[in-house]
Nucleic acid binder design. Structure first.
Length: 738
DNA sequence: TTTAGGG
DNA sequence: CCCTAAA
């Protein structure tokens, strides 16, 4: 059995290379989609990962990072960020923002835009800088459950950049992406959806581009059509941007993003998101084609941001997360395509086909969609969450220029808190400066990582057949608990390499800079060196939420371990967290399927599972065939007594070997535990026994006399049977002849 | 449900 | 004993 844990953390995503395969990624049912948008924000991104949960045992935990040092720097500048900043700030209210929030915000904006048709996004320029600047909108996933699947998620962090509007797209430096959603209301709901998603994707991409740090995992949302038309890019990059413009897009964000309440639980407290942004991480593909459009997408919004958007970063966790399988291919394609595909059906491209499947899953799986409405509704929740959550920032430059400096330092930042717990970023651009400084400067700031889930490696459990289901459950629970509690060890992977020195600071390790963050990954290892992490299970059993913890790697590692796992004995589990830009590092789990199945319905969120290393893979194993569920407990063995054999032989001599039901009625009428199948089987074994040497016989000896009778009867009835088979025809012919 | 067989 | 395809 596998337990999947989600890692909400903001790990860098594996990089999205077109080349790479997305295999790593898997989606779970739990995705969060964002929808709707707010204008401002900027996103940054996020990571995502996958998750698999067969068991749905996902616990969420939250890890808080100590203050170690990171700041979250910042958000990339968003070109039109002004709004974004605002929004962010507003939302933030001093609280840290979560990547999720950002996403949510963006989605919201998008939605709102859509609705309002306020912003039709243009490509870059269209939106006013002011308006556009914060383009990010959140979209929420549809409450409708449309789900869009993203194969990969990245977390996006949105930032607003007041000043640079377009820059984001083009400018590598500025990570900020604007997303505007153009309203293309015309588009049908789904289409809108798609569009939105595109936008989002685009925005993300843009962000990514802007930021070095930001990574975009794969977005595979494709919109069927880019109505925008303006840009129909070859599917890939361009689309993203162009599409983005379209009004509706759904974005799902993975783990980090949460949106809603349903999942709310998770979000609530625990998860913090980190978002590292690195350019590197970002897939090029994903990256917007620099198109302005994409950039534009982001743009427009505004204020909403506050409320809906960034402000609440909500983390959504799906209780049920299903895994979606995403074909590696798909992933790859996605990556390659650089988009996110939004609507399954919509996809027209060849790639789409792949997506379709996924999409189906997603669709099937109920997903959390955030709709704006929801977002708004949830806003309060989100905020709460938000508070809890730190905002992720991209080193990549999401923030303002000031921030940008900070950003340079590290892409990783997820969140930073000041000592007082305020999020630097949360404040948005305005605060950014200070926050950044503070972050960098003061050790007080913490980087938070949120790991949504960890996968639990396969657990092997043996239980007597006679055990009850309840005992089975307990057993499993214990196993999981044990694993989580103590046996796990968390490994930190940076760029595919394990970071073994626990004493190094994150900064030393390179995490501080966004660059490596991309590659940051966590693994669960069976070895229990470390203490068990406290298992905290969030309300939802399904998730483990890990709080974010800012800190040096050391901390992180410890944290992570706690979270999850269980794993099979052998396997090391893998946290899906991180793959990053380097896809390589990430192992790709293959389990998605199972998870998908399970989770489909429920979880909206998609999780991408990073490819696992070998170890990781081990972790992932899909469900093994359960030997037998207890439900099907095997009957107790009740050897035949000599008396029973006697009765059986006698009955068979009389009735023959093909009338077991009659034999049963005749000789074992009262032996309810002996079925005719049992009698047949027993006869079979008796015949066999009679034919083997006495030395080979086992069990209670059966009198030879009976065995002889068995052989006689067997021979007789076999002959009779043969006659029946042969005669009839013969007889028939004979008759005819006669 | 029974039978018949493989596991 | 279990599991199943066939009948």
């Amino acid at each position: 059995m596998h337990v999947d844990l989600r890692f909400a953390s903001c790990l860098p995503l594996p990089r999205p290379c077109g080349d790479e395969e997305p295999e790593f990624w898997r989606f779970d049912g739990n995705l969060r989609s964002l929808r709707g948008s707010h204008s401002h924000p900027v996103l940054e991104v996020a990571q995502f990962h996958l998750v698999i949960s067969h068991w749905d045992m996902v616990l969420q935990r939250r890890l808080d990072c100590g203050s170690s040092g990171y700041h979250a720097p910042v958000m990339p500048h968003v070109p039109r960020s002004a709004r974004g900043k605002r929004s962010i700030r507003k939302k933030v209210e001093g609280k840290p923002l979560c990547a999720f929030d950002l996403l949510a915000t963006v989605a919201g904006k998008l939605l709102s835009e859509r609705e309002n048709s306020l912003a039709s996004c243009d490509n870059t320029g269209t939106s006013d800088p002011a308006a556009a600047k914060d383009t990010i909108k959140r979209e929420q996933i549809d409450s409708n459950e449309r789900s869009i699947k993203f194969e990969a998620f990245d977390l996006l962090s949105c930032n607003e950049h007041p000043k640079s509007s377009k820059a984001t797209s083009s400018g590598p430096t500025s990570p900020i992406v604007k997303s505007e959603i153009s309203d293309e209301d015309a588009v049908g709901g789904e289409s809108k959806f798609i569009e939105d998603s595109r936008k989002i994707g685009c925005g993300i991409a843009a962000v990514a581009e802007n930021f070095d740090n930001v990574r975009i995992s794969s977005c595979s949302m494709e919109s069927h059509e880019c109505k925008d038309g303006s840009k129909k890019l070859p599917q890939g990059q361009q689309q993203t941007a162009g599409n983005a413009t379209d009004g509706n897009a759904l974005y799902r964000l993975d783990g980090l993003v949460d949106l809603d309440a349903k999942h709310s639980v998770l979000g609530s407290s625990d998860s913090s998101v980190e978002v590292p942004l690195h350019r590197n991480n970002i897939y090029r593909n994903t990256l917007l084609p620099k198109q302005e459009d994409g950039m534009d997408l982001a743009a427009c919004n505004d204020d909403d941001e506050n409320s809906s958007g960034c402000t609440h970063p909500t983390v959504v966790t799906n209780k049920t997360s299903r895994m979606q399988h995403i074909g590696d291919r798909r992933i790859r394609k996605l990556l390659a395509s650089k988009f996110w595909r939004v609507a399954p059906t919509m996809l027209q491209d060849s790639e789409t086909s792949n997506y379709d499947v996924e999409q189906k899953h997603t669709l099937q799986g109920k997903r959390m969609c955030y709709t704006r409405q929801r977002t708004q509704r949830n806003s309060s929740k989100r905020r709460k969450l938000f508070d809890r959550c730190s905002v992720s920032v991209c080193g990549g430059g999401i923030y303002d220029e000031d921030v940008s400096n900070l950003c340079e330092n590290g892409g990783i930042k997820l969140e930073t808190y000041d000592s007082q717990g305020n999020l630097c970023e949360a404040n948005g651009a305005s605060s950014t400066t200070t926050g950044q400084k503070s972050c960098y400067e003061s050790p007080e700031y913490h980087v938070k990582l949120s790991i949504k889930s960890f996968k639990v490696p396969e657990l092997v459990i043996e239980i007597p057949e006679t055990a009850t289901v309840g005992s089975l459950k307990r057993t499993v629970l214990d196993a999981v608990t044990a694993i989580l509690g103590g046996g796990l060890c968390v490994g930190v992977l940076l760029q595919g390499k394990k970071v073994r020195d626990d004493n190094k600071t994150l900064h030393q390790v390179g995490i501080s800079h966004g660059d490596k963050l991309d590659n940051l990954g966590f693994t669960l290892e069976p070895n229990p060196r470390q203490s068990p992490a406290p298992l905290t299970s969030s309300e939802d059993p399904n998730f483990l939420s890990i709080g974010c913890a800012p800190e040096p790697l050391d901390r992180i590692s410890p944290v992570a371990p706690a979270v999850v796992d269980q794993g099979g004995p052998d396997a090391t589990q893998f946290l899906q967290i991180c793959p990053e830009s380097d896809h390589d590092s990430v192992p790709s789990p293959t389990d998605a399927a199972s998870s998908l199945e399970k989770t489909k319905a429920n979880s909206l969120a998609l999780v991408a599972v990073p490819p696992m290393d070998t170890e990781a893979l081990a972790m992932v194993p899909l469900r093994n065939k359960p030997k037998r569920s207890e439900a099907t407990q095997r009957r107790v063995r009740r050897p035949f007594s000599v008396a029973e054999v006697e009765a059986l032989v006698q009955a068979v001599e009389k009735l023959g070997t093909g009338r077991w039901r009659d034999v049963k009625l005749c000789a074992f009428e009262n032996a309810k535990h002996r079925t005719y199948v049992d009698l047949k089987d027993k006869w079979k074994t008796l015949v066999h026994t009679a034919r083997i040497s006495p030395q080979q016989r086992r069990g209670e000896p059966v009198p030879q006399e009976l065995l002889d009778r068995v052989l006689s009867a067997q021979a007789y009835w076999s002959q009779q049977q043969a006659k029946l088979l042969l005669k009839p025809p013969a007889s028939a012919e004979t008759r005819l002849l006669l």
